[in-house]
Amino acid sequence: MTARLAALLLTVLAGVALWRSALGEPGPAERVHEIAASLRCPDCQGVSAAESSSQMALSVRAEIERRLRAGQSADAILDHFRQRYGDWIRLSPGVDGLSALLWILPVAALAAALLPAVRRRRGRGASAVLPAVPRPGRRGLPAIRRRPARRAPNPPDAEHPPSAGRSRADAVPAVVLLLLGSVAVTGGAVAVWASGRIQNAPVAEETRGGGGDAAGRARALAAAGDHDAAVRAYREALRQHPDDRAARYLMAFELVRSGRAAEAVALLEPLLATRPHDPDLLLVVGTAELTTDPARGRRTLRRFLAAAPPGHAAAPRIRALLRSSRDLPG
């Protein structure tokens, strides 16, 4: 009794404490933190503006503080950011439109799951009074449908020889499984095919480069050592995306590897006129020219050294190469 009394009394006190903390007004620093926590840090990955110490996150916090001091409400500040960054900046979507689903679905699902429980609880009270007579049809709970009724009394032990009826019953799951398996495999194949098609669709310049397209096939061929086929694939890739410089360079590279350095030079020469300071271009052209016209190749590689940013990984080796061949003409 004392325990229950103490529990009751303390619960009341705890309720008061909770009530008081719910009413408390947050301080200015807490308000900044609260608003920043609901905004994405613009230049990080998946961290809120409250946690990151990146420059943009610092800017966001400073801006929130400035606007709070100017007397703006939290909603106005959130709107300010949303106008500039779109819905993306808010870490928690609003309760309007499609986003409402996000808030309603979990609650609805939980209610749907717990409602039967509550109902069943009431049912239990009733059934405790009733005699426990098994009613055919609505009995027990396992809720796994068991198809062949006659199978049930048969323990699956070895001493019961399998009857003809049982083996037919056994065949039902097998057939269903076979059907399901073929549907599943077809589904998987369709998914692979559909996603492959989507991946092959022309995409923004940064996102290109997944496998599957001509360039990807070319890379795969190159990796497999079939340089001629890779060149053909790159040519096809260039027909699809004529401005894909990476593919052009890689194709030239494959040409060099399959002993067609002259073609590589011819392929890249026009580019060199418009981009005379592209170090990677100079590097590929230079290495190709080393076979066709060594003197000119060394000149191009020297231009590469001049154009390469400090720390370019190929620079030391090219430098060494040029030094070792200094005694040659050119």
Partner: peptide, 22 residues
């Protein structure tokens, strides 16, 4: 997809809502 279709098919085939006097 293959796993999902198999599982969903099997569950739909076998599992029934439990009776309410459970």
């Amino acid at each position: 997809t293959a796993a999902l279709v198999t599982a969903a098919g099997l569950i739909a085939w076998r599992v029934r809502r439990p009776p309410s006097d459970a």
